[in-house]
């Protein structure tokens, strides 16, 4: 570990004697734990649409996300820490995205990159478009733009680092024995339209209500 890194880790208010500089840091366990995680966020190699191209640009020469430890794109969800939802989420793709999310190991984060992933964007009214990935997955960082520039993506990822910095090993869900090891979301399926299993009673109630003759609520 380089000197600077240790100095970063050291908590303010604790003086390290000059002869031990670079060899010793007085800090908290959380800080060490988060330092490791925030400095090697591995994104999943998974692009949906236009934003994915800017994601690649952010990895390439000029912007170089490797500076933040985010250059290792993993094609397998099992090895990735963050899912950058880069592009329009369609109904046809939705079951696959949820399955990928469920396959990711904790700790896992979701970044909604661009207008489409955040809320449907210009394609929101489309019949095959899911109006925002947050209808299904918990999102940590939203990045605005259509598409966000590579700088915006880098800024969003730095925001994610800040979020990681604030987490405490005492409270994180993946070490909390009481809860599930990993957050899993019910996988939607493709019927006459996209069916979210969590909303089945609601859908049933509404469709029965709409079927009531003479259906005063049909023009809802």
């Amino acid at each position: 570990m380089k000197d600077e890194d240790l100095r970063d880790l050291n908590l303010p208010g604790y003086e390290i004697p000059p002869e031990l500089a670079g060899q010793l840091a007085i800090t908290t366990l959380d800080r060490v734990y988060n330092f490791g995680r925030r400095s090697s966020i591995w994104p999943m190699m998974f692009g949906l649409a236009c934003c994915a191209i800017e994601m690649i640009c952010a990895q390439a020469g000029r912007y170089d996300m490797a500076r933040f430890g985010m250059e290792v794109m993993r094609p397998s969800p099992r090895q990735s820490d963050v899912m950058i939802v880069a592009g329009t989420v369609t109904k046809k793709m939705m079951p696959a995205i949820v399955r990928l999310y469920n396959q990711m190991a904790e700790p896992k984060y979701v970044v909604a990159m661009g207008a489409c992933a955040s809320g449907g964007g210009p394609f929101k009214e489309g019949y095959n478009v899911v109006a925002g990935i947050d209808k299904y997955l918990p999102v940590d960082v939203y990045i605005p733009g259509c598409p966000p520039t590579p700088q915006a993506l880098v800024a969003g990822m730095i925001k994610l680092q800040e979020k990681i910095d604030k987490q405490s090993i005492k409270h994180v869900r993946w070490y909390d024995g009481k809860k599930e090891d990993s957050v899993a979301v019910a996988i939607p399926y493709l019927g006459p339209d996209l069916i979210d299993p969590r909303r089945i009673p609601e859908i049933k109630a509404k469709s029965m209500e709409l079927a009531q003759p003479p259906a005063p609520a049909a023009e809802a």
């Binding site: 339209d193 979210d196 859908i203 509404k206």
Partner: peptide
Amino acid sequence: YAEKRSAYGDNINFEPGFDPEKWVPTDP
């Protein structure tokens, strides 16, 4: 809000009387 305009509060639409519990999933 588009969500408020839609009967199901989301970008989904089903035939009136559609019962997701009785519906037999067909493999697309």
